[in-house]
Design a protein around this nucleic acid. Structure first.
Lengths: 155, 155
DNA sequence: AGACCAAAGTTCCTTTAGGGAACTCTAAGT
DNA sequence: ACTTAGAGTTCCCTAAAGGAACTTTGGTCT
């Protein structure tokens, strides 16, 4: 095998990478989320090779992140997010937050996000699900969980 | 070029992928965060090829995500997170949250995170930076931002 | 002083996946 | 029947991942 399969690792990061870690996959997911739901649309928007797009779409379907649905009596299909996929898009929003802060430069963010609940242009903030206070990587302590492997533990 | 460079796209997801989108990069970042700070440690922990590890470390340094520091008079080095890198680890925590929910299965999460501020085992929750209410991908509306490209706009 | 050692890479070779263009297949429309 | 468009397949080429062996640097050991 030339690309290592991470799913064997006892690590949720590695496992998540096996779902969307391949090149283009997050951008394909973004496109489906943003309304580019058909093969030709995604291909044209991203400039991705048709061969690779086929592979990525099939993989995302296998992983239960998107679904393939006919939209015509002709063989025409659109891809839609599952619930699992919609929650994965949250990850993309965090990528956007980081990229906007550290990589956007003078031009500023390419895309703005309006929070419908309050109507304001905003961004995501990470909070502790328990106490509601800010929770960042530096604010936590790692402990082995029930799914940890005792020997050879990665992660 | 055989792997497309995403940085030209006006999209913070694509730009972030150019920093940590390559295979292994998020796991290298995780290791540095988790205290595997030296070449041999990371290599042994991940089982990554030494060649690829060298490439990834150099790329993460170029991107300003980690720094290389000597820890001996001999040529020995350790890698440490920059502020930019530490904030990128937040992204990994969101990956963990999703992976724990959707991929951990019966065994449960391999790693637990204790929030030091409240002392509880917890996970991250996405909130609107403006109003503090939950903010997920389905709760927002996308608008072109100042850094958007008018023609050929991707993202 | 010379032998030995460990960390941190380099080098080289093989395999496989991405890029890209051309081709196919299906079911309408005209 | 002829054309068109969406949705893939197929094929070749090149570059990146895997993996093992090799090198370099400065200490330690005897």
């Amino acid at each position: 095998m030339q690309r290592t399969n991470f799913s064997a690792m006892a690590c949720s990061i590695a496992r998540t990478l096996d779902v969307i870690g391949e090149p283009w996959s997050p951008l394909v997911l973004r496109d489906v989320y943003a309304g580019f739901t058909r093969f030709e649309q995604i291909q044209a928007d991203l400039g991705i090779s048709r061969k690779v797009l086929t592979e990525r779409l099939n993989h995302l379907i296998e992983q239960g992140v998107i679904e393939r649905r006919p939209y015509d009596r002709r063989p025409r299909f659109e891809y839609v997010l599952t619930e699992k996929g919609a929650e994965l898009v949250d990850l993309l929003m965090v990528m956007v937050g980081w990229g906007d802060k550290w990589l956007a430069g003078q031009a500023g963010p390419p895309v703005l996000y309006r929070h419908r609940a309050c109507g304001e242009i905003s961004s995501v903030d990470l909070r502790c699900a328990h106490c509601g206070e800010p929770m960042h990587a530096g604010d936590v302590e790692l402990l082995p969980g029930p799914g940890a492997r005792t020997e050879g533990g990665r992660g």
